[in-house]
Structure formats: C-alpha cells, structure tokens
Computed example of a mutant assay.
Amino acid sequence: MTERELEILALLKQDPLIAQQDLADKLGISRSAVAGHIMNLTNKGVIRGKGYILAENRYAVVIGGANMDILGRPAANLRVGDSNPGSVSCSPGGVGRNIAENLARLGSDTRLVTAVGKDAYGQQIIEHCQRAGIDMKNTLQLNDALTSTYLSVLDGDSDMHVAINDMAILERLSVDVLKSQQAMLKRAELIIVDANLSEAALAYLLSNYAEIPLFVDTVSCAKATKLKPYLNAIHTLKPNLKEAEQLSGMVIENYSELPGLANWFHNQGVERIFLSLGADGVFYSEPNEQALIPAIPVAMVNANGAGDAFLAGLAHGFIQDWPTRKSTEFAMAAAVVALSDLATINPNMSEISVNRVIKESLC
C-alpha cells in the first residue's frame, strides 16, 4: 500500500463510517482524491462492502518501547569533550515502536502495545504511528508520566558513539495491563516482544502465550539476560553475536562455530535464531536448515533502526508464509532501506522499496 493509503486505512480503522469529505479535510487533499484511494483499497480487497468494512487480516501485535529519538550528527569527525558543529533531529523511535512502523509500512496489519505520556512527545508519537497505519487503540496514554526519550550521538562514520535512554514509563506496562488485552493477544498471528519490557511483563508474556509464535528482540546484552529462563517459549530470536554469547555462555572464535552456537539455542527450545553479524551478514538457523547470508553493500547514512527493520521484515515474511531463507533475504534488504535514510524509520520503507533493493543486489 502507498503511504496515503496507509493514512486513509488508519482513519477508517478509527471511524469506519467517516465521510469522504471528512477524510479529505483531515488529510488536506480533495474529496475526489480520497474517492480514488478508496477505490484502490477496495480493488486490493482491503475494503469490502459499504460502510468501509475492512477485511479481517492476520495481524501482528508488537509489545515494547516507544520513544522520542533525539539524534545528534557531527558535520565532521566527532571531537569527544568538545562542542561539535552538526545537526540535531527528533523523530519517533523505540525498539517496539520502530518494529511496528516498519511492519505497517511493509503492508502488514500491526497493533502496538506501549505506554506514552499525555504530553507533546506522546501525542506526536500517537499521531505519527496512526499515519503510518499502526493500530494504536491498545496503547496506554498516562497523565502522570513522561514519554520516553532516547538521546544518541553519531560519530563521523554515522555509527552510534553514545546514547542515553529515559524509559521509566515502560514499567507502567504491567502484567495487569497486559492481562486486560488477552483477547486481542490470543487472536494474533504472532506477537513481537522487545526486551525493554520489565522482567514481570516478559515473564507473563513468555509464560502464557507460547502457543502463539513469539518473536523476541534482545535489544542489548544487559537486557537479553532477562530472557534466559524463557528461551523454550521463543519461536524467533534475533540477537547479535555478543548477545548470543552472553545468553549461551559460549565464546565464538570463528564463524565455523556458529552452527554449534545456534544448536545450543535450539536445545533450549528456540525454534529459529537469526544472528546479526554486522557487516558480515546474518547467520540463520532452524532445526532443518542453517546458512550464513552475506550482507548487502550499502552507503550507511544512519545505523539506528536497521535491526528493527530486519525483525519487521522477518515478521512480514512469516505472515506471508514465505520460506525462512526468503524472509531472511527480505529482512536484510529492509535493513538496507533503513540504513539509507537519516530518520530512524525510512519514510520510503515499503515492500516495493525492499524488493527493489533485492533486485539491485542481484545485478
């Protein structure tokens, strides 16, 4: 779907009886343009019948953090301990939220469960997510807490030099809150969880929803350790090599040892593991298949968000019933799209743009 179609779809989900003129007014376009988009959505099978009855899609639920990302980028090499000329930008971020936006932009029906404050950043995040096509009805908006912020500074090579996060509000995404959304969670095609959640929330989700494919983002070495007691509930795990070593207690000297590392996770109950190897690509493993896929060369603009786009690509492939290798190649191309824009989420993220990267990489 196009970005405008995603915006219209998000508004229709909020109000299925909304008039076309009201849609036009909200989007700042003509009524005839809205009618054209509605016709396209109908032809694609997204809208069925009068009253904008939406087709019942297989949907993913993402549970995790939503931040306002504040990004500092030096104009030249970073001088530590000094003031650096450069640029500062703000955009909605957070591991869970980033995965959800990428997944929605790829065309999958996506619902986000997170917590934001009733402040300027929180409202900006809600509105941005809705425009991207994310269903935000299950997100908490709190009067007595501030929306998370994530401050990062890049180095001269556009890689992250340092970051500070303020994510205290995510503790409010409690077990009781998650229990109140049980009916919606039980109907999900898959549930994506990021390890920023509290230990109690992770324990509840990984102990009570193992019958639904659970995709887990480890986030960092420190946060990955919270997952160790629940590895047998995880369908798809996406760590980098350091995080995998932290969880397993193994140290990998060379890539020939990756199959053994992956098998350790399988023995703990993880069905699929995708080991991020940075510039060397991705090693994926499931019980009957293992492979190392080289990275696609890319002129990196911003390293933030590539891993989130990768996991979204995996989830999108799973919803489409693609084989694991095809999903992995698609996810790697989605990461390339993410790396190619200064924003945390590339506004051009779509299934079309990802397939274009795949096609160009084969030339």
Score class of each variant (00 low, 15 high):
95 V>L: 10
98 N>L: 10
100 A>N: 08
100 A>S: 04
101 E>P: 00
102 N>I: 05
102 N>T: 09
103 L>E: 00
105 R>D: 06
105 R>F: 05
105 R>V: 09
105 R>S: 11
105 R>T: 07
106 L>K: 13
108 S>T: 15
109 D>Y: 06
109 D>L: 01
110 T>A: 01
111 R>P: 04
112 L>P: 02
115 A>R: 08
115 A>W: 05
115 A>Y: 04
117 G>S: 03
118 K>W: 02
118 K>T: 13
118 K>F: 11
121 Y>W: 14
122 G>L: 03
125 I>L: 10
126 I>K: 01
126 I>A: 08
126 I>H: 04
127 E>N: 12
127 E>C: 01
128 H>S: 10
129 C>V: 04
130 Q>L: 07
130 Q>W: 04
130 Q>H: 12
131 R>C: 03
131 R>Q: 15
132 A>Q: 04
133 G>T: 05
134 I>Q: 00
134 I>V: 14
134 I>W: 00
135 D>F: 03
135 D>R: 04
136 M>T: 02
136 M>I: 10
137 K>P: 02
139 T>C: 15
139 T>S: 15
139 T>V: 14
141 Q>S: 00
141 Q>G: 02
141 Q>K: 12
142 L>A: 05
142 L>K: 07
143 N>K: 14
143 N>H: 14
144 D>K: 13
145 A>H: 09
145 A>E: 15
145 A>G: 10
146 L>P: 00
148 S>H: 07
148 S>Q: 13
148 S>I: 03
149 T>I: 15
151 L>A: 10
152 S>P: 06
152 S>E: 12
152 S>N: 09
153 V>I: 15
154 L>C: 07
155 D>L: 01
158 S>V: 05
160 M>R: 08
161 H>G: 02
164 I>R: 05
166 D>W: 02
166 D>R: 09
166 D>H: 14
167 M>Q: 11
167 M>D: 09
169 I>Y: 02
169 I>D: 09
170 L>N: 03
170 L>P: 00
171 E>H: 10
171 E>T: 12
172 R>V: 10
173 L>K: 13
173 L>Q: 06
174 S>Y: 04
175 V>A: 04
176 D>E: 15
177 V>R: 07
177 V>S: 09
177 V>Q: 11
178 L>R: 04
179 K>Y: 04
180 S>C: 04
180 S>Q: 05
182 Q>M: 11
185 L>V: 08
185 L>W: 05
185 L>I: 11
185 L>R: 10
186 K>V: 11
187 R>H: 12
188 A>M: 12
188 A>R: 05
189 E>D: 11
189 E>Y: 13
189 E>P: 02
190 L>Q: 14
190 L>W: 01
191 I>E: 06
193 V>A: 09
193 V>G: 02
194 D>N: 14
195 A>L: 08
197 L>G: 01
198 S>P: 00
199 E>Q: 13
199 E>T: 14
200 A>T: 06
200 A>M: 07
201 A>N: 03
201 A>P: 01
201 A>G: 14
203 A>E: 13
204 Y>V: 08
204 Y>E: 09
204 Y>W: 10
205 L>K: 12
207 S>E: 15
210 A>I: 09
210 A>Q: 14
210 A>R: 15
211 E>S: 15
211 E>H: 15
212 I>M: 05
212 I>A: 00
212 I>H: 08
214 L>S: 12
215 F>I: 13
215 F>K: 11
